[in-house]
Design a protein around this nucleic acid. Structure first.
Length: 429
RNA sequence: GUGCCCAUGGUGUAGUGGUAACACAGCAGGUUGUGGUCCUGUUAUCGAGAGUUCAAUUCUCUCUGGGCACCCCA
């Protein structure tokens, strides 16, 4: 035994054995059901794209060292997609001009990022991507938020298990302007935003130091602090009256009112600490949080990004979307004990063993007959004593066993045994 | 890129400076047509390499692999 190959999956990827696949399918099916209910249309793009479309705007890491790239036969740099947004934007630019607006699109696809795997994060992962293109109206922001909420509610989660936190880049820009950060160069401004992003993780002292390093003056920091500490949108409007006509602020107020009137009031909150790393967001931004102490984390987020299409040389168009991942969703379901019911939702299966070698042919034909009637029939492949057959069905959690042996053949019948109750029914062949 | 933890049959674990125990799963049988219980048998060069030692699975080092946190991302 030399040079044996490893049977382990490549780092950061995973096999999907049937048991795990059931969970994944349940998540995907739920996602798809809700999207279709909203009239979103499903699409898919290639697994690989020109590496440049990620290098352009996906950020230093995702578009850089985390990119999985190779060279094709023509010497072109290709990458396995690390996210969907550039791909779907590329696709939409081809049809945008002539397409009836708005476009409501979704996809469920896999991605790769060359990261260090850890809890809730793999190198290969799957995401649902939902986007609306071609409408800058606030109703599209509302619909996207509503869709995100309904996707969570489709899993029938317990009370108070998650929340959707809303903020706005327009509002944050207003705050930065108030604090004089607008005049900072791009790099310094980014540093300010990054610092805000860490608001809850860093100590107050460190935050002050960082903001100072970015070039903010003392009185400016007071504005930022007031903003970051505001408990709700009304309090913010009172504390910083200069913002009262800020478009971001007004939009958040309107959207939250609308969501409340639609019955989502319990799940939503204004949260100034929601920033999100991407530069291309320029309107509403939001994050969905798992509130379980065991798994207290941002599950996914999204927002409005109206400025991405220009990398393909066309004029920009309005866009807003979000993307939940398979692993974060699974952790959410797991943390609230919601995985058990998935097993129960499986369709009924029948096991049809070959009880006598001489009946092999007849058994195969019986399986065909039952399948034609729409039953899910698992065929035995080798002669099996009845005891073994029942044992097998037990261990595989197969609900029904079809019994067809010499006795049954003589009477031209077969029996279906229910493995839970043990009851048997007879049927004529 | 930084830090911490871990590595024993298929899986989950125990254990010891003198080559390993238990549970579960698998297969075969006890049981030539009615299961989930029970019983028996069977399944490991203790991640790799080097060092210390009469002797290393056990101690030390290196490597490899895995996990977690940070960074980043969501």
């Amino acid at each position: 035994m030399k040079n044996v190959l490893s049977n382990q999956e490549p780092k950061g990827t995973r096999d999907w054995l049937p048991e795990e696949f059931i969970i994944r399918k349940y998540i995907f099916d739920s996602w798809r059901r809700v999207c279709l209910r909203y009239g979103f249309e499903e699409y898919l793009t290639p697994l690989v794209e020109s590496a440049d479309i990620y290098r352009a705007k996906s950020g230093e890491d995702i578009g850089g060292k985390e990119l999985v790239t190779f060279t094709d036969l023509g010497g072109r740099d290709l990458s396995i997609r690390p996210e969907m947004t550039p791909s779907v934007t590329r696709m939409v630019t081809k049809i945008y001009a002539a397409a009836p607006k708005p476009l409501k699109y979704f996809s469920i696809a896999n991605f790769m990022r060359n990261e260090k795997p850890q809890r809730g994060r793999n190198r290969e992962f799957w995401q649902l991507n939902c986007d609306i293109f071609g409408s800058a109206a606030l109703t599209s922001d509302l619909e996207i938020l509503q869709l995100a909420l309904d996707i969570m509610l489709e899993f029938d989660p317990p009370q108070d298990s998650f929340s959707l936190a809303i903020s706005s880049r327009e509002l944050i820009d207003g705050v930065l302007e108030l604090s004089g950060a607008k005049e900072l160069d791009q790099e310094k401004k980014l540093l300010v935003v990054r610092t805000l992003d860490k608001w809850q993780k860093l100590k107050a002292e460190d935050i002050k130091i960082r903001l100072q390093e970015a070039g903010l003056k003392k009185e400016a920091m007071a504005v930022i602090e007031t903003f970051m500490k505001s408990q709700n949108i009304e309090a913010l409007a009172l504390a910083l009256p200069a913002l009262k006509n800020n478009q971001g602020l007004l939009k958040i107020i309107k959207i939250m009112e609308d969501l409340e009137s639609l019955g989502y009031g319990d799940f939503i909150e204004f949260n100034p600490t929601v920033i999100r790393g991407f530069d291309y967001y320029d309107g509403i931004i939001f994050e969905v949080f798992d509130k379980n102490p065991e798994n207290n984390r941002a599950m996914f987020g999204g927002g409005r990004y109206n400025g991405l299409a220009e990398i393909f040389g066309v004029s920009n168009f309005p866009a807003i979307g979000f993307a939940p991942g398979d692993e974060t969703t699974r952790l959410f379901l797991e943390s609230w004990g919601m995985l058990d019911k998935i097993i129960l939702e499986q369709p009924i299966k029948y096991y049809l063993p070959i009880l006598d070698k001489n009946l092999t042919n007849e058994t195969i034909h019986l399986a065909k007959t039952l399948r034609v009637r729409g039953l899910n029939v698992i065929s035995g492949l080798e002669e099996q004593k009845i005891g073994k057959a029942l044992d097998f069905a037990n261990k595989k959690k197969i609900a029904k066993v079809v019994i067809y042996g010499t006795e049954e053949k003589e009477k031209s019948i077969y029996k279906i045994k229910d493995m839970d109750g043990g009851s048997e029914e007879m049927f004529n062949i």
